[in-house]
Structure formats: structure tokens, C-alpha cells
Design a protein around this nucleic acid. Structure first.
Length: 448
RNA sequence: GCGCCUUUAGCUCAGUCGGUAGAGCAGCGGACUUUUAAUCCGUUGGUCCCGGGUUCGAGUCCCGGAGGGCGCACCA
């Protein structure tokens, strides 16, 4: 359609929220926003009549209207609906924020997200992208024969991770219960039960700090595949990420992230855990040195980090400080030390390592995968060791889940498992720097 | 939990050395039949986050508190 030309033959019917209004005597231009976007409206007194035009003059920014009309292109070239009739569907009693600056006050954006969504199109787009990403995850996973399940949120013992749980009370049982901190143990029970490919995209609750990358309730994908090894899982993981990047980038394999461009062309980079440490420390941090508890403690001190309560903790801190920020392009870090991987099976040919990998992008951990421990005696021994730690005062160590050991005693097939933090993944894919920008209603302190 | 920053009109923000509280947009009244941050004229609107203190006088300085943000710690 040329500028100034119309398509009067075709009738359109739209509904949405009035966001801008430009009155010019006997005509009005307005902007209508619905879930699909914005379009300009044109109302002419001669077309709609005296009364209807007077009604238009009373309409305010924020009101909800339904309109009928035909499309044309304005002198300035903008596609516009020439309104022939309209009906008010709802009044806005609250004034909307500044039409140009939108809503900037972060506190108000989180506490009144509905206003944020109305006036900040990029915020709305991030959340629509989140929905598309999660929908595509499900499609991709389902296509490989996985079953999605829902396991309980209320548990007598919240296990499968180290974190302080939220407590609640069940009146009908008169018992204190815990909100889950992982879906891991129940999903592995289902593997024992013969659901050989199983996953859950579920809300996890951890009663810990709140910051740019932590919200007390967050969403985790956990997925388990019987008879897969960790390389099968890595292939799957890589293909899933590449697919999600395609979806959010309109078919490309690159992602703009601030100043940087990340390439998700397969294969992603792969680096050994200790090779990465050596590389980013000019060879100073070697496997031999770090696998020695005293050597790790000394390295920690050289880096100016506070002493750690244990060997595994020290290794995590060192890796965080030395390596993590350097892993900008998607990189699989492979072959973790067993000492920081309590739930993973040891490698047959190298007992100090496990076949675990983590995927990092933009310095952020995206996924964590390993072959699951399926030896009930080993699992029992580890629970007993944890019980001792707990007795010694570590509140983040869960109570043992003895029924889980019993489940393993019925026999669990060799299984690979993966966990992906959905909120952080969405942050990455939508170029957001705070988890609060991908969680619709982030936790805030109660306030008048 | 600790540190730094922040809170002024519905929104976005100024506010100097401690001396009557400001602008733009929104709102309200008016003009305008292709504008788009429409324009033009006029105009309403304040618990300066809360509580104390210093001072003749506090948005401004001091103390305490609250909300929020960021960083650190925590989060294998």
C-alpha cells in the first residue's frame, strides 16, 4: 500500500489499550496496544459522527477500547486503522507513567509489574521470549521420547542439593514439612520405576540470599536418561542450546550480549577442568597441587581468598576466581574432580575424576551434568557422611533420605542426569543482567 | 549479615553556600481535519520516605529507622 492509500474494502476489528492520543480539532490520532504490538488509529469527526467523536475526546490514555475500521497508510507512511466505530471496554482510573521515559523506578517495576508490562515494551518482550524458550525446551525434549512429570513440592525431607529449605506446616497431618530444594531424588525414583527418560521443569525453593542471580524461588529443568552416558547428555545439551538460540535470534547461531557476541555454532568449546585452571593461571595451578588439600588451601591464600571449610569448597572458590569469568563463549568444562562431585560416579580409569561437565556462557554456569550414582551402598555411605556433617552444625546439609537408598536397592540403571537453571538461561537468551528481569514477580519485602 | 549508593508532583528528573518547592511530560480549560515525544495559549498539582536533633531558619547538615539498587559474604 502506498502512502496515503487505503484498503477500505477490508474491515478490521481490534481491541486493546489506548497508549497515546493526539487530538487535532476534528481528528484524533491514537496508538492502540495489544498482545501483538502497537498500531496507530485515526478517528475523523465526519466519519464517526458528533456523539461518537465527543466520546473519543473523553477517552484517556490507558483506557481499553474495541475499534472497527479499515487500514490505510498515513502521509508519513505509518500503517493506520481508519476507525469507523468504537466501543469503550474498560476505563483506566490510575494514570500511566510518562509516555516517553516509561517506568524507571525498579522497585515499582517489580511491585507493580502490570504497569511495567504496559509501558515498557522491552520488558514485555523479555517475558514473551521466556514463554517461547520454555515452550521450545518442552518441544525439543518431548521429541526425544522424554516424559514430563510433576513431583511433590512439599516433602518430609528436602534433599538432592545442599541448601536451607523453607519450612511449612501441614494441618491435616500436624507435621512440619519442607519445600523442595531439588527434584533430583524423586526423578531418580522414577528412573528406578522404569520411566527411563524423565524430566521436570519445576519451581525450586531455597531459603538463602537474594541478589542479581538468586531468587528464593526459581525454576529448574532436571532431566534423567537411563542408559545414557555423559557424552550422550552433552550432545543433547549442545543441540538444545543451539536450538534455543535459533528460536530467540530468528534462526541465527549468534547471540548479542551487551558488547559481546556469543557464537553457539556447534561444536561448542570443550576444556578439561584442570586444563582450564592451568591455562588461566599461567600453569601455576596444576592438578597435582589442587588435588592435594594443603596445596589447594595454599593456592586459595595466594589468590587472596578467605580460608575454606573443606577441600571441595576451596576448589570451587579457586575455579570461580580464576576461570569462570573467562568462559565467555559457550564452553563445556569436562572431567571434574570427584571431591566436588558428591553425587557423581567416579571414572573407571581415573578414580580422582568424575565424568561430569558444566556448560558456561558469559561467565555464568548454565548446566551441570553427570552420570548418577546408582550404587546403594555408596549412596548410604555418603548419606551417613552427610549426617555427620549435619550433626556438626552445617545447616545446609539435608537429612538423609533413607527411602532413596531403598529405591536404589531395587536397582537403578546407569543414568545420566542434567540440571539447567531456567531463569539464568533465560537471562542469557534475553540479554538481561538480573534474574528479576526474567521473573515476573520477584520476591520483595512486604511493604505498605 | 557488612559496605556503598538511593528515596523530591501521577511519571522522568533538577534543586547552588542552610534562606518562600522547580522543569518537562501527564491531568484540567481553550485553538487546530494526516499527527506520531504533535504543536500553540492558559492552568491545577507537594507528608521533599519516616522519626529525632542542630539552627532564627533544614529538601539541603547530624543521628536513628524503613524501602529499593549495587557490591561483598552466603549460595557445592
Amino acid at each position: 500500500m502506498e502512502n496515503g492509500q487505503s484498503a477500505a474494502a477490508e474491515g478490521w476489528s481490534l481491541a486493546g489499550r489506548l497508549l497515546g492520543k493526539r487530538t487535532m480539532g476534528k481528528t484524533v490520532f491514537a496508538d492502540l496496544q495489544d498482545a501483538g504490538g502497537r498500531i496507530q488509529l485515526y478517528i475523523k469527526k465526519d466519519d464517526v459522527g458528533e456523539q461518537s467523536f465527543a466520546d473519543w475526546e473523553d477517552l484517556e490514555r490507558g483506557d481499553l477500547v474495541g475499534v472497527r475500521g479499515y487500514m490505510f497508510r498515513s502521509k508519513m507512511g505509518e500503517l493506520t486503522l481508519h476507525v469507523t466505530s468504537a466501543v469503550v471496554l474498560g476505563k483506566s482510573l490510575q494514570p500511566l507513567p510518562d509516555k516517553w521515559h516509561g517506568l524507571q523506578d525498579v522497585e515499582k517495576r517489580y511491585r507493580q509489574r502490570y504497569v511495567d508490562l504496559i509501558v515498557n515494551p522491552d520488558v514485555r518482550e523479555s517475558f514473551l521470549q521466556r514463554s517461547r524458550i520454555v515452550a521450545e525446551m518442552r518441544r525439543f525434549i518431548d521429541a526425544q521420547g522424554f516424559f514430563e512429570v510433576e513431583t511433590p513440592t512439599l516433602l518430609h525431607v528436602a534433599g538432592g542439593a545442599a541448601a536451607r529449605p523453607f519450612l511449612t506446616h501441614v494441618n491435616a497431618l500436624d507435621q512440619t514439612m519442607q519445600l523442595r530444594i531439588a527434584t533430583e531424588l524423586n526423578l531418580k525414583r522414577l528412573i528406578v520405576g522404569g520411566i527411563e527418560r524423565v524430566y521436570e521443569i519445576g519451581r525450586i525453593f531455597r531459603n538463602e540470599g537474594i541478589d542479581t542471580t538468586h531468587n528464593p524461588e526459581f525454576t529448574m529443568l532436571e532431566l534423567y536418561a537411563a542408559y545414557w552416558n555423559v557424552h550422550d547428555m552433552l550432545e543433547f545439551n549442545e543441540a538444545l542450546l543451539a536450538r534455543l538460540v535459533e528460536v530467540v535470534s530468528g534462526g541465527a547461531s549468534e547471540l548479542k550480549l551487551g558488547e559481546r557476541t556469543l557464537s553457539f555454532a556447534r561444536p561448542f568449546a570443550r576444556v578439561g577442568y584442570f586444563d582450564a585452571l592451568a591455562q588461566y593461571s599461567d600453569g601455576k595451578l596444576t592438578r597435582e597441587r589442587l588435588l592435594d588439600e594443603k596445596g589447594a588451601a595454599a593456592a586459595l591464600e595466594e589468590l587472596g581468598l578467605p580460608p575454606s571449610p573443606g577441600h571441595g569448597h576451596a576448589l570451587d572458590k579457586i575455579f570461580d576466581r580464576v576461570v569462570q569469568d573467562n568462559l565467555v563463549q559457550p564452553t563445556f568444562v569436562m572431567e571434574y574432580p570427584a571431591v566436588i562431585s558428591p553425587l557423581a560416579k567416579r571414572k573407571a580409569d581415573d578414580r580422582e575424576l568424575v565424568d561430569r561437565y558444566e556448560l558456561f556462557c558469559a561467565g555464568m554456569e548454565i548446566s551441570n551434568a553427570f552420570p548418577e550414582l546408582n550404587d546403594p551402598d555408596d549412596q548410604r555411605a555418603r548419606f551417613e557422611a552427610q549426617a555427620a556433617q549435619r550433626a556438626a552444625g552445617d545447616q545446609e546439609i539435608p537429612e538423609p533420605d533413607w527411602d532413596f537408598v531403598r529405591a536404589l536397592e531395587y536397582g537403578m540403571p546407569p543414568t545420566a542426569g542434567i540440571g539447567i537453571g531456567v531463569d539464568r538461561l533465560v537471562m542469557l537468551l534475553t540479554n538481561n543482567v538480573s534474574v528479576r528481569d526474567v521473573i515476573l514477580f520477584p520476591l520483595q519485602r512486604q511493604h505498605g
